[in-house]
Write a protein that binds this DNA or RNA. Sequence first.
DNA 1: CGGGTTTAGTAATGCGGTTTACTAAACGCG
DNA 2: CGCGTTTAGTAAACCGCATTACTAAACCCG
Lengths: 352, 352
Amino acid sequence: MPASLKDVAKEAGVSPATVSRHLNGSLELPKETRERIETVVRRLGYRPNPHARRLSLGRSDTITLIVPDIANPFFAVLAATVERAASARGMIVQFHATSNLEEREIAVLRLAADHRSDGVVFCTNRKPGPDVAQALDALPRAVIVDEAVPGAHAPQIFSDNAQGGFLAGAHLARAGHRRVAYLGGDPALMSTRLRADGLEQGLRAASGGDAVNVRVLSGLHDVTSGRALAAELIDAEGDETAIFVGSDEIAIGVIETLRARGVRIPADMSLVSFDGARALHLYDPPITAVRQPAAKMGERAVELLLDGDWDDHALPDLVEHLPVELIERASVAAPRTKPTEDNETIQPDRGD
Amino acid sequence: MPASLKDVAKEAGVSPATVSRHLNGSLELPKETRERIETVVRRLGYRPNPHARRLSLGRSDTITLIVPDIANPFFAVLAATVERAASARGMIVQFHATSNLEEREIAVLRLAADHRSDGVVFCTNRKPGPDVAQALDALPRAVIVDEAVPGAHAPQIFSDNAQGGFLAGAHLARAGHRRVAYLGGDPALMSTRLRADGLEQGLRAASGGDAVNVRVLSGLHDVTSGRALAAELIDAEGDETAIFVGSDEIAIGVIETLRARGVRIPADMSLVSFDGARALHLYDPPITAVRQPAAKMGERAVELLLDGDWDDHALPDLVEHLPVELIERASVAAPRTKPTEDNETIQPDRGD
DNA sequence: CGGGTTTAGTAATGCGGTTTACTAAACGCG
DNA sequence: CGCGTTTAGTAAACCGCATTACTAAACCCG
């Protein structure tokens, strides 16, 4: 058994209260006593029991990170900075993956409450129902990151989705595209709406008055869904010349499917991704992307949680849109001039 | 304030002990009392305070995950399965990133001990000193994953590094390569030795008696180091025709540098990576890789931690090598046929 | 010298559970 | 009826720390 406060007290010939108060700096002690205590502490290798501390203090020196899936590089990067920022402030982070299950989102939010978590960073990919908002509101300190939770009263940190969409749209329009598909998450999601709208506005702004069109296809933010959406788009046989995807995960599925169907990027179809957490510059072709400031978002979240003025009544209304950046690479080119029926035949590429 | 056991007891007209014992199943109660308690529990929304529970029980229902960097996809994937496996068993996971700093490794191991963590999954990228081994040994339950910790007495789960090296070597040899560089981590690392040795054996085994050579260059397992190592290799002006890298992170740096220097993959230099956690199939060219079973490793670690027989004296000596898989893609081709100079056997220095 | 002020601590209580050992009452039965 | 056995709980002692309120002794000063 490790040494307890009582053990230290006994050895040092003082009361436990004295040791505790000294260690926590709430008691000024004469040098002699102080040194006696400290010697014993060292000799016994005393380390306070954090559970006792937490029980007594009613807080946990822990922050809770909730994400859909930590294997998703966007969240992995976010998690890395959350951990860094938290541990720099002496906080421990515990994390939960929800797999985008509402039930699980609620369960882990409750858990965070039970644990008197000193701060919760909540991310979801799904449109969360009112129960999630309620579970969030039950927490003393939570910040919502990446995707809005309607009805929740907590500060929110997003990347600038509208601007991201706009940048992508303008870039595509400048390359000559007028009809673009947006393959993203649930259409009820704030991010989906903002990006699709931004995309349309960007297209419009840079296409010199030409008619523009955005087709929105929705699924989940994962590779499987990316494959399905790309297939759906191709099968629809529309006249889109470019695809804007809502995440790197979807992009992967899209690239795979396009390749399998013999659709060349960017010759037959241009592509812009949203996230940029992966090494898209090494892809074939290098993928143009709107880069989300994942690291900044995590850092800012922890900053708000731990250094924010939570007595300030207005804090929960805070909404920040962190700037995104368009990284131009080779996956965007001018659209093919007028598709001819001949070229439309599908010729399978090498299998890979 | 949330309801406590005492509140429930009072409302239900029984003692706290009764409620506690009933809730934990250590007391059989007549239906009437039972229902009375349960009604109150529901009405008050009673949830046990985990800190009190932990203090009393001396355990935490928590497992601790320690990795160098969670943003590294290999560890992110591992973390994802650790979380899944842990939460499936009602455990919470808290994680720490060490940035490969020994000081921090030790600090977080101590923290895990303080927290009476029910199990620690420890990963490092560095050759850990004896203090790390000691801190690990102070834990009641820890498993070492991915990289050996000399001197530590805990079960260890690795991917089959030797086999991975062998597969890569044989594959390269079959493609015609005889001189290969291994760009990996610290040469003192178990993984480095096993992979480099395996590589050499694989080369030898599949090159029909030709002389083979492996040049080992060492750095860190990150992108920056990959760039530096590639530069070092090129500047050495050796006659290696292929590179085997110790991780996807290094691979990225290598690809970048090769590309910047005008060295084409695989025309001028073949490449095989080790990890396969990234979407290497989309790279230009698609990168052949030895895939580590990251997910399985995490799962197995938790399994051992939570379902292992820790009374078994032999458990800490367990070492498992999980099978790896060679994924052949397009980054390996026959070496350029160059003027065959026979001075290679004698001259240790540069060939040209 | 006596009373007020420091100095140097301490006793006791609470945080919210778990668990062991124990009891009071009811029940069974010879 | 008396005694052993269930039944249905309970009292009390932790777990290890934080903190509030308090005290005993020493010191200072007029």
